[in-house]
């Protein structure tokens, strides 16, 4: 399974990748903003994306991506981002994780969304 991790912070991408590796997911593509994510999302099976990013933010990315794909998208958000989460869900995000997250939470999202 191929996972796309989208975040402008290299640290947060490293943390997500480490969590995914713990669950045996090693085929991972990284992107630093929504524009890069659109370019690299060709054959991925699930996407984890941040919301506030330069160049193209998470909301714009999800709206653009949803025009051509229905694969699961998980939003990675900070505490207090409830408004963003609601907007994200309306725009096509399937689920979300709140920072700081345990690797098991990230892996649980993959399991539940891919099983659906």
């Amino acid at each position: 399974m191929k996972v796309l991790v989208v975040d402008d912070s290299a640290v947060m991408r490293k943390i997500l990748v480490k969590a995914l590796n713990e669950g045996g997911h090693t085929e991972i593509v990284e992107a630093g903003n929504g524009q890069e994510a659109l370019e690299r999302s060709g054959d991925v099976d699930i996407i984890f994306t941040d919301w506030n990013m330069p160049v193209m933010d998470g909301l714009t990315f999800v709206k653009e991506f949803r025009k051509s794909s229905k694969i699961p998208i998980v939003m990675v958000t900070t505490e207090g981002g409830q408004k963003e989460v609601l907007e994200a869900m309306k725009s096509g995000v399937n689920d979300y994780v709140v920072k700081p997250f345990k690797p098991t939470v990230v892996l649980g999202k993959i399991e539940s969304l891919i099983k659906k």
């Binding site: 900070t78 505490e79 207090g80 709140v98 920072k99 700081p100």
Partner: peptide, 9 residues
């Protein structure tokens, strides 16, 4: 940033 958000949450 994460500590601050988690603290206020």
């Amino acid at each position: 940033n994460t500590i601050a958000g988690r603290f206020l949450g």
